[in-house]
C-alpha cells in the first residue's frame, strides 16, 4: 500500500458504533488474555487480501481476524461458533434485537 497511487484522502468521519467498540474491546481482551497478539491480528487481516479491504469495513475485517485468532488460540471451536452464530441470527432482524441477550 505504501507508495501506491491513490486519490484524495477521504474526509468523512463516523462515530464508532457500539458493535465496533465491542470488536475493539474483544481484540484488546483476547490479546491481554494471551490468545493471540496484535501481530496475529495483522497476519489474518493481510491474508484476507486486497478485496477484503474494499468490500468490508474496518471493524468487519477486525472481527473476522479476531475470531480466526481466537479459534487458532483454542478459545472455542469452529463448531461452537457455528452453533452460536445460528442461534444469534434467529433472535431478531436487527443488531439491537440479536444482542439483547447480553
Amino acid at each position: 500500500m505504501g507508495g501506491d497511487a491513490a486519490g484524495p484522502v477521504p474526509t468523512d468521519q463516523h462515530d464508532f458504533s457500539l458493535w465496533e467498540k465491542r470488536v475493539d474491546a474483544l481484540m484488546i481482551i483476547g490479546s491481554a488474555k494471551g490468545y493471540f497478539t496484535v501481530d496475529g491480528l495483522r497476519r489474518v487481516l493481510e491474508d484476507m487480501g486486497k478485496d477484503a479491504f474494499e468490500s468490508m469495513t474496518y471493524y468487519e475485517r477486525w472481527i473476522a481476524s479476531v475470531n480466526q485468532n481466537l479459534i487458532e488460540g483454542g478459545a472455542y471451536t469452529t463448531a461452537e461458533l457455528a452453533e452460536k452464530m445460528d442461534e444469534v441470527a434467529k433472535r431478531g432482524a436487527t443488531y439491537g434485537d440479536a444482542a439483547q441477550a447480553t
Binding site: 463516523h14 462515530d15 464508532f16 458504533s17 457500539l18 458493535w19 465496533e20 467498540k21 465491542r22 470488536v23 474483544l26 481482551i29 483476547g30 468490508m56 471493524y59 468487519e60 472481527i63 473476522a64 479476531v66 475470531n67 481466537l70 478459545a75 472455542y76 461452537e80 461458533l81 452460536k84 452464530m85 442461534e87 444469534v88 441470527a89 431478531g92 432482524a93 436487527t94 443488531y95 439491537g96 434485537d97 440479536a98 444482542a99 441477550a101 447480553t102
Partner: peptide, 23 residues
C-alpha cells in the same frame, strides 16, 4: 453511535455477538 440497532443484522455483527458470548 451509528444507529446499528435499527439496521438489519449483518453477518459480521452476528459474529461479534457470538464471539463475545462464547468468550
Amino acid at each position: 453511535y451509528r444507529e446499528d440497532d435499527d439496521t438489519p443484522l449483518s453477518y459480521w455483527q452476528t459474529m461479534e455477538i457470538a464471539v463475545r458470548e462464547l468468550l
